[in-house]
Design a protein around this nucleic acid. Structure first.
Lengths: 263, 263
DNA sequence: ACAAAAGTGTTCTCGCTACACCCATGT
DNA sequence: ACATGGGTGTAGCGAGAACACTTTTGT
């Protein structure tokens, strides 16, 4: 993998900060908005920065010979431990005021690295935003070299965020809502088998409104991307619901071609 | 304008190539897909490169202190002579194989500039794609420093294009089609007053299929973004059509809020 | 009078919504 | 038996498609 090699973030933070400019593209980064679903809540994965006491999105730099999409996938893998997830580029953020250098300057000083304004990490960065949908239970959140913790946060109860990361999350959510009308969603958010109600919950949470049970059921079945399984026995005092699973083949076909009968 | 200044492309190509890395972000560029409409055809503005004998999209670099959107707007202004146009970011292209350096290397050699692999223009570039809709008749196409001509090309009859510029155009068109369902389109493509048929032609061309005259008329009127003007006298042997103009206030409100009754 | 193109009206269908009704299960 | 929640049926409404009919104008 001489040419397309993926530069791993150096295990030594200092080394990374000192020589990163030789391995990564300058002035370009990726940031991931990683959505998960748990207890009827849409969640986002956030990092708590070691220095600066702030929350931010998982992000990273792009290797000199690394495709952009691969860089985003690498960041996703490093933070969640998962591979092959739904990962979608949605917008590139290029305002000039988006960098806040106070914290990083301090870090560099503390580490006795050149804190001059020309250090590569202090230059202006344009960041490409990606969003991902992941299965909450499968994720093992891992902080990166600049963070102490990596945890889920309720979307409607976010802490104060670094720089423009709040804007990035909002834009990601907006894009997700639009795509909901064109694409199937859920494959990476739910376990292999699930009752229809869980899928409906996701749609309701993303869209921010209640949907009719009967109509949602019919609509989903109508999309022809689900396989109906045997019954589930919840133990609840009511009729046991069917279990469904996504038909992988049909699902990914629908992902490419869209759901509406537009063509 | 000390900080937010817009670095103009140097009038001297050589100077630009020699010192550009001090004024522009490295490894990042913008490319514009500029759509125009003429004689019932959708057109794209392309440049013919001085060296290499190929066609490509109008593009440019991003000033060190220049917002990304401003850079794209600057490129658009420089090539068309027009300001305040509909300009929309749609995707960022970050494959590693997207650069073709043979031509540029030759240029650098010819100009006696360092043709080493480390020259800033020879490094890998990630490019942010924007598309614009402009009024064909108003445009005065201007080639840039690396091109001899700047002209319109029929979308369905494009020449061979530089690098991945063909992909970029396809993606832009795809995005335009999607947006057609949500947003009003036409304000920057048509003169101030126009018959409904012209607007319909644009929709038909972008969508690639015929639309019913009666239904299109009703639908557009129903959007409530048009003002009906007095009659037009075509001189044709038929009933003269009404002229319409976009109601700027309502139009831009619809641009922000979308057209469907979704909310 | 007739052709050509614009304007207007009508019907049909499809999809979505709302809501009613029935079914399975545990207390 | 009854409460709870899942599954299915159906009437109504609105948007869009197809197409017929009328209007204006030049030859």
């Amino acid at each position: 993998m001489a040419k397309g090699k993926t530069p791993a973030v150096s295990t030594s933070l200092k080394e990374f900060l000192r020589t990163g400019h030789r391995h990564f593209l300058r002035s370009l980064s990726v940031d991931n908005v990683i959505f998960g679903f748990h207890e009827n809540q849409l969640k986002v994965l956030l990092l708590h920065t070691t220095f600066g006491n702030q929350w931010g999105l998982p992000g990273g730099f792009v290797g000199i010979d690394e495709p952009l999409d691969k860089a985003a996938a690498r960041v996703l893998r490093d933070r969640t431990g998962l591979n092959d997830l739904y990962l979608q580029q949605f917008h590139t953020f290029g305002q000039t005021e988006r960098r806040d250098n106070k914290v990083l300057s301090k870090v560099l000083k503390d580490l006795n690295l050149n804190p001059g304004k020309d250090h590569w990490t202090l230059q202006r960065f344009v960041t490409v935003g990606y969003f991902a949908l992941v299965e909450y239970a499968k994720v093992n959140p891992q902080p990166d070299d600049l963070s102490t913790t990596c945890t889920w946060h309720d979307l409607d109860n976010l802490p104060t965020l670094l720089m423009d990361h709040g804007d990035i999350i909002n834009k990601a959510l907006e894009e997700l809502r639009i795509r909901l009308k064109y694409q199937p969603i859920g494959y990476n958010l739910l376990p292999r088998e699930f009752p229809m109600k869980d899928l409906q919950s996701i749609y309701e949470t993303v869209l921010g409104r209640k949907l009719d049970r009967a109509n949602f059921n019919r609509k989903m079945v109508g999309y022809d991307i689900l396989d109906k399984k045997k019954k589930l026995f919840t133990g609840g005092s009511h009729k046991a619901p069917y279990l469904y699973s996504f038909n992988k083949k049909k699902y990914f076909k629908a992902l490419e071609n869209g759901l509406g009968s537009d063509f």
